[in-house]
Amino acid sequence: MTAAVEESASVRTREAALLEIRQLVVEYGAGERPARAVDGVDLAIGEGEIVGLAGESGCGKTTVANAVMQLLRPPARIVGGSILFEGEDLLGKSAEQLRRYRGRNVSMVLQSAMNALNPVMRVGDQFVDTMRAHERIDRRRALMRAGELLELVGIDRGRARSYPHELSGGMRQRVIIAMALALNPQLIIMDEPTTALDVVVQREILQQVEALKREFSFAVLFITHDLSLLLEFADRIAIMYAGEIVETAPAEQLAVSPQHPYTQGLLASFPPLTGTWTRLTGIPGSPPDLRDPPVGCRFNPRCPHCRPEDHELYVRQTTERPKLRIVAPGHEVACHLIARGSE
């Protein structure tokens, strides 16, 4: 039964996927015990779709992003799986092909985008460099385009003459987003793009990304630890824990019916702004060391449903890795509790 379910899952995603990650495995470090930062991740992103990848620090979400951008450097290395962009595997492309792919097809807004700008170059010149690395365009026209792009993200075009230090954090972040749009890519990867900003600016920027997405119809892979943000912003959400995806679902569905105990714990870690006060517990313990992850389900040491009293289940939880199973259309969960319920 399991095999059939997995088959149908991959057939379904193959139809319209812009990007498809299949069974990706990435390791850091060499020797007997390398750390598997990403261990068998499947993720598909359709055209114009906003997919959120959420998880705690060290769960491998940034490594997935870097793998998609083909930016992994030793000691990180891809040891298994494939990354298909419009059906073509990126692993095996030449350096020049990858250079063209970055920017034209996929661009990235980095975690510390505040520091991603060159401090001694005017903002406009940095746009010109980006554009001229990928297409034949003269300087004057490139600067014009830079001005248009800045206006798209709500920055006065005269700011093209500013140096990065003359801009606020929120403006620098918008400049980076404008730069990511410069080559009209099909997919933009955003890795914690608003984490360093305060809530008001964060909201403005996300509303703007949403508006730009409607206009230019690019897809977004949005990586964050802030699940509450994704519920509002993303079409579909994948929850990552210790190198694995443990649950994926449409955002609306995840908000109302999270199935994995880790997802439930994450959602219960955000204190509400309204309603009666209730004591929250968070999730006890901390994420595992990926050089030596727990056997069986990796969440088992922190899982409230993993108890020796329930012997049969406990044995499976501590010996067998749960697989992603479909529980509802578009909703997949990797948890032994679910498997038990459906059999």
Binding site: L150, E151, V153, G154, I155, D156, R157, R203, E204, L206, Q207, Q208, E210, A211, K213, R214, E232, F233
Partner: peptide, 9 residues
């Protein structure tokens, strides 16, 4: 989230 264009400040 509502999509919203931010005017240049």
């Amino acid at each position: 989230l509502r999509a919203q264009r931010i005017e240049a400040r």
